[in-house]
Nucleic acid binder design. Structure first.
Lengths: 345, 345
DNA sequence: GCATCATAGACAAACGTTTATCTTGACGTC
DNA sequence: GACGTCAAGATAAACGTTTGTCTATGATGC
């Protein structure tokens, strides 16, 4: 296809005033017509003329001028650590669906967890008169002066609504599944201490295990330490357990990546997943499905988390009351890496 | 940590006027001080007073009012099909790095390839006075009236700069690698006809193969048809080739996902990757590294593509001339799924 | 034939800035 | 003492809208 003609230095943007001048009308009248303002008597004939002229000149009202005196900007500010990795982008995607549907635009900023950037961007967004702030995995120091909803925010802040994964439910699903398959000797992985929701997850795991009468043995607990996103994360711990001849029939991993590492360690020890040992992941990353054996895991409904957060934020902006905290239930995804524990010891 | 105090109905935003009134000065003077306007004589004492008051009231200049008369809004509009999947988010991430660094903010819109939405959002962004448009994997019908850079845009448009992967280079890297390993009978996968850059890739592959003296045999060519993102995409074609007893030592897959499917088919046929057949992917998705055997692949430097596009866009906005098309070189990532062809036939 | 009323539209203020130009008083110079 | 200069700041216009109020003009009522 040949390039189209029109240049992109573009027809200069036409203002209400120019349009009015051309029509021999006042800007006000033109504005009334274009906005279908009520309580104004303007004959259909004039309306036609105005609309045609607007069409002809490709008139676009200046959103800036508009929002200068009307309060509404229909703009949201988003704060997140990094764009492009799976987690944050998916949450943002879910939120974006809602924003677009409700005719809000949003500006995204990323700060790589730098405190001063978080503060700076918050201010800059505010000075652009955003109506609300969506904070994803971001540590806010003070409550912003605009309605705010935080996803996976750490500390509770006055007036800031938190949307978080229901870790209790996650633990129930994971342990419940293993329990039903007959597993009683389960190895546990505990997330790195610096990891954002590592603590709440571990607490929920301990709590649920106790309720179900499952033992969380210290000598079957692996504490992750390395700061990596490769399966190498889960390999050494499980390998060591196997070398020490600890007895267990399943391992509850911190996430899918470490579950893949765990699988490899089991495989390398000459054992089979899931026949000898079941492996349970967390997150449901795309690789969880592709891996062999595909991973049974707990899915975090990231898009849903995003859309719930966005919905709550819009409600707040409209002045409605919303809860301080909203928990989102995860889902159990059963695949190949877990199986019924074998009768034969 | 206990919740902080301050409420988020927030201290009402303070305007220049209010500030000026409080100080007993005119708004203009306050503006001069706060902007360090040159050629204005204002005693240091007054400057101090002004700055202190601004601090005290947490004054934030209204970006909106500012950009109403100055032309600059320092805002970019982004058009993409979908937020949250790997490809687009990574490109956006790379672009965002540049935008943030250069103090531009951006609004992201997604259109799921709906033509009318593309047009509508372009207009809306324009009416918000964006200074430039970044179009990612989006089919633009007409050149927008603002400087525009397109990533993986399909048709060339007058004045729109295109940033694309250098498919020729990609083919050279892939085929060169296989060639060096001794492969001469290679099976090819051709992308679905509806896939965006399927055509240019195939053309480059044919061209490069010819140059290297490699044969692209019709009976070793698999045309993908299913519209799926699961490995199932690559499985049946390769399986069929094996069943038909076609002889080949390597398969050049359309992407990593289909490469995983291909691997499985080979495995299921009782053959080994890479000992019997080498498998080459494309994209370098995260799973490529985790899979067993990990995939040799051609990496699309997505973040780089994004940052190059953003850089070009900013240059255009500054009024500099930039090329109509910019090709980004891919990278060969050698892992376990390819090996030297075995001597023994 | 005059008051009343609806119509069709103009006028002007306001939103929060920036910036060019003007004012005022103090001081210095010859 | 007339004049110019400079400092310190005020005024006002402008950016592109929206919206409350005002004004002509003609039509209607009695």
């Amino acid at each position: 296809m040949p390039p189209r003609s029109s240049s992109n230095t573009g027809p200069k943007l036409v203002s209400l005033k120019t349009l009015a001048e051309y029509l021999g009308l006042s800007a006000a009248t033109v504005s009334f017509v274009l906005n279908d303002a009520p309580n104004r008597s303007i004959p259909e004939k004039t309306r036609q003329r105005v609309r045609e002229a607007a069409q002809k000149f490709g008139y676009q009202p200046s959103h800036i001028a508009r929002s200068l005196q009307g309060k509404r900007t229909h703009t949201i500010g988003v704060l997140l650590p990094e764009l492009g990795d799976g987690y944050h982008s998916q949450v943002l995607g879910g939120a974006a669906d809602v924003f677009m549907r409700e005719k809000y635009f949003f500006m995204t900023t990323h700060h790589r967890h730098k405190k001063d950037l978080v503060a700076e961007y918050t201010q800059l967004l505010l000075s652009r008169r955003i109506e609300g702030l969506l904070s994803i995995d971001t540590h806010l120091e003070v409550p912003p002066t605009a309605p705010t909803v935080a996803v996976a925010g750490h500390s509770p802040l006055a007036g800031v609504t938190n949307v978080v994964l229901d870790h209790e439910r996650a633990a129930e699903l994971a342990l419940g599944h293993l329990y039903e398959l007959g597993h009683r000797k389960i190895a546990f992985m505990r997330g790195q201490l610096f990891s954002s929701d590592s603590r709440s997850r571990w607490r929920a795991t301990l709590h649920t295990a106790r309720e179900m009468g499952l033992e969380v043995a210290a000598d079957l607990t692996i504490l992750l330490e390395r700061d990596t996103h490769s399966p190498e994360l889960g390999y050494p711990g499980v390998k060591q357990l196997l070398e020490l001849k600890r007895k267990f029939t399943a391992v509850l991993c911190f996430n899918d990546v470490s579950a893949i590492g765990a699988s490899r360690a089991i495989h390398d020890a000459g054992l089979s997943v899931p026949n000898d040992i079941s492996v349970m992941g967390f997150d449901d990353i795309p690789a969880a499905e592709f891996y062999t054996p595909s991973l049974t895991t707990i899915r975090q409904p990231l898009r849903e988390i995003g859309s719930v957060a966005a919905t709550l934020l819009l409600k707040k902006i409209e002045g409605m009351k919303v809860p301080e905290v909203k928990r989102i239930a995860p889902e159990l995804v059963v695949r190949e890496s877990t199986a019924r524990v074998r009768k034969s010891k």
